[in-house]
């Protein structure tokens, strides 16, 4: 259930081959090295100088001449292949296969299809020094420069043969234990609910508490409707008291004054009633306990409500 996080660092890790290490160690390198190469040659404690000259002309990209050369070589190879295949076909096939997967090509494809034991091996090498792409760029330029002076400097691709290129791995995100606990709880609740539903027909106590039948629902609705009806009636009665009752008590009154009295009375009673109505409607919002397995339905906030009612001892109770 662990998730894979997205990649944070997209740098390739190139674990240098033995050849490359030897080459680097035998070179007399200057001081302005990239960090990783410096670490490789001068020990772990190497620190690069701050004034980096990054303005080097990067001639690492193929130019048109190169592409032309590649194309001509391709043509040549193809012509030769055709000639070969005319002569002996089976041999050609074997030949091609060996070209497709030459042993030194593992630097290209290995990282994507490493088997588990190899992976473990790589994992152990966590502390081994590695190069990044920019180091390779630097190395290319450096080797080219050196080769213009000395002829016997090996080529970069020969040095890189046998190197191990590793793709960065996704970080594995462990599930949050809080979330896990919550999932377990929710699953338990769900199961309890299902169980309750299943055993409803055989539980004597609960047969008398059919929460999901229509009559039960209607009863609930009626209770609320009655509460609202009571509210309206008491307001009306209050109004009537102010409008007629006071007149009957003290004698003739002006119509406007009577109206005002009625509205005032109704308002006061409405305020008080609203308080009780809100309280009553709030009580109805009981959530049944989800983890309960048998017995009559109990509610999550039952105890809480009972306390409240007994404290206020309010008049609007069924």
């Amino acid at each position: 259930m662990d998730l894979k996080g997205s990649l944070v660092d997209t740098n390739l890790r190139i674990y240098p081959s033995y050849k490359l290490k030897i080459f680097l160690e035998n070179e007399k390198l200057g001081d302005d090295l990239p960090v990783n190469i410096g670490k490789l040659t001068k020990g772990e404690t190497y620190k690069p100088k701050q004034n980096k000259s990054d303005s080097k002309p990067s001639n690492i990209y193929l130019n048109e001449n190169d592409i032309k050369t590649i194309n001509t070589i391709k043509d040549k190879i193809k012509v030769k292949d055709v000639n070969n295949s005319e002569h002996d076909n089976p041999d050609q096939q074997g030949n091609e296969k060996s070209v497709e997967h030459p042993p030194d090509k593992d630097e290209k494809k290995d990282s994507s299809e490493v088997s588990d034991d190899v992976k473990a091996e790589i994992f152990e090498k966590e502390n081994v020094l590695f190069l990044t792409t920019s180091d390779i760029d630097w190395l290319y330029n450096y080797i080219k420069e050196r080769r213009s002076k000395h002829d016997d400097i090996p080529y970069l691709h020969e040095l890189l043969e046998g190197s191990n290129i590793e793709l960065p791995k996704n970080e594995v995100i462990k599930r949050n234990p809080v979330l896990e606990a919550r999932c377990v709880k929710l699953r338990a609740q769900q199961e309890a609910r299902e169980y309750r539903k299943m055993t409803k027909g055989v539980d004597n106590v609960r047969l008398r508490f059919p929460e999901d039948s229509i009559s039960y629902q209607l009863k609930q609705m009626n209770r609320q409707l009655i509460a609202i009806g009571q509210f309206i009636i008491s307001i009306f009665a209050g109004f009537l008291f102010g409008f007629r009752g006071v007149e009957w008590m003290v004698g003739n009154l002006d119509f406007g004054f009577r109206l005002l009295l009625g509205v005032m009375c109704a308002l006061i009673i409405a305020l008080a009633e609203i308080y009780f109505l809100a309280k009553k409607l709030n009580e109805e919002l009981n959530v049944p306990k989800t983890t309960q397995i048998g017995g009559p339905p109990t509610f999550v906030n039952d105890r809480f409500n009972a306390n409240k009612i007994s404290k206020h001892d309010k008049p609007h109770q069924d």
Binding site: S6, L7, T10, N11, L12, I14, I60, Y61, L62, D66, T69, I70, I73, K108, T133, I136, D137, Y140, I143, K144, Y155, L156, H157, E158, L160, I165, L167, P168
Partner: peptide, 30 residues
């Protein structure tokens, strides 16, 4: 010599392309 030089360039390009591909895959993901 020229072939070797081009090979070097191709190898460096390959490494760059691999990194580029990862970046673009990351873009797709996000």
């Amino acid at each position: 010599r020229s072939v070797c030089d081009i090979l070097d360039k191709l190898i460096v390009k390959q490494i760059h392309l691999m990194e580029e591909k990862m970046c673009s895959e990351l873009n797709i993901e996000s």
